[in-house]
Design a protein around this nucleic acid. Structure first.
Length: 332
DNA sequence: AAAGATCCCAACCGCCTAAAC
DNA sequence: CGTTTAGGCGGTTGGGATCTT
């Protein structure tokens, strides 16, 4: 049998810590260091298990913990790293000075996750939740036409409406791009997909693999929407700029130091933003790209870093995306 | 003002992994 | 080489705080 839980011993206190307990623990660790967490409670005179002491110290009492509201920069860092690393809270915490994995996890679950969902982004994949977009298509169409209706109205109302219109335009632009874009799986089987002629979307362009025929008719009948002129970094604008042209756009997700990517004529979709990639490359002491040896598959590559754990997580992200793999240099 | 609903986060639980034995 | 142990991690929960009706 495996080990028994350290807190199973009877008589040990559980639940919220008192200020007296905090003081005892803090004073002991400041004098002696924590040493063996299992032995610490007895040595310090605490009626707690070692695990409870460790959690209290690392998540609350540690002097270098930064408390208070997360800054916009910290939020962006979490969002970018989560897009690449997923729920690797300790890894994310490693890039945020003074924040604990527990705090980041709580903040994600209570704030950032909801924010993404409300913005139509899947918090797991960080991709647009296209099913939601399709379901609200009539509403989006109405918003696109809102500008003309508001020409004679007050500027504050107009500004608000224009913001809504911009969002709707971006979403519709993305939907149109789906109509004209081969699927990632198609990109892996056909190396050249730069055909500008419209092609019917296949099922895996969106979440549930189904697109009703009325939606297709509505989208096909729309005039081509001009790309947003505001320079938005939104995922919609980025995705559409790449997929409409069939090439990797300037604003689209790219690995600037990855060989041959910019020469590829394939289009692809990937989760991490360009900023995410740059950040991870930098933070992991990126040294270059190379094919995996021995190769896991003909198109497997890995990031050369000196952080084994993060490298592994990063590699998985790349290997999971067949359209990305197809762009990598082939292993002889 | 009170009751119910919702939010938030500290703490717990159970699992995994690496090291020690 | 198998077992045990300690530490670490991510998921979940309990209950206080806050908001809504």
């Amino acid at each position: 049998m495996g080990r028994s839980p350290c807190c199973e011993e009877t008589g040990l206190k559980k639940g919220p810590w008192t200020s007296e307990e905090d003081e005892i623990l803090t004073n002991y660790i400041k004098r002696n260091g924590h040493g063996s967490w299992r032995a610490l409670p007895k040595l310090a005179g605490l009626n707690r298990c070692g695990k409870s002491c460790r959690l209290r110290w690392t998540n609350y009492l540690r002097p270098d913990i930064k408390r208070g509201k997360f800054s916009p920069e910290e939020e962006n860092t979490i969002l970018n790293l989560h897009a690449v690393l997923g729920n690797k809270w300790s890894a994310i915490a490693g890039h945020l000075q003074g924040r604990t994995d527990n705090e980041i996890k709580n903040y994600w679950n209570t704030h950032l996750k909801k924010r993404l969902i409300n913005s139509g982004i899947d918090p797991v994949t960080h991709r647009p939740r296209t099913v939601d977009i399709f379901s609200s298509l009539p509403h989006l169409l109405a918003l696109v036409n809102l500008k003309e209706l508001l020409m004679d109205h007050q500027s504050s109302i107009e500004e608000h409406a224009l913001r809504l219109q911009a969002e709707a335009t971006a979403k519709l632009h993305y939907l149109q791009s789906l109509l004209h874009t081969p699927t990632p799986s198609a990109a892996t089987t056909s190396s050249v997909v730069n055909d500008p002629s419209p092609s019917m979307p296949s099922g895996n362009n969106h979440g549930n693999g189904l697109m009703d025929i009325e939606t297709l008719k509505m989208l096909s009948s729309l005039p081509q929407i001009e790309p947003l002129a505001c320079g938005s970094q939104s995922v919609f604008g980025s995705l559409s700029s790449a997929s409409n042209s069939g090439q990797v756009g300037e604003d689209f997700f790219s690995f600037p130091r990855l060989p041959e990517l910019r020469n590829s004529s394939s289009s692809f979709q990937a989760t991490p933003s360009r900023e995410s990639c740059m950040m991870v490359e930098d933070s992991l002491n990126f040294t270059g790209w190379q094919p995996t040896q021995p190769p896991k598959s003909s198109s497997s590559h890995q990031l050369l870093v000196d952080d084994g754990v993060s490298c592994s997580a990063w590699s998985e992200i790349l290997l999971e995306d067949p359209s990305f793999s197809s762009l990598l240099p082939q292993i002889p």
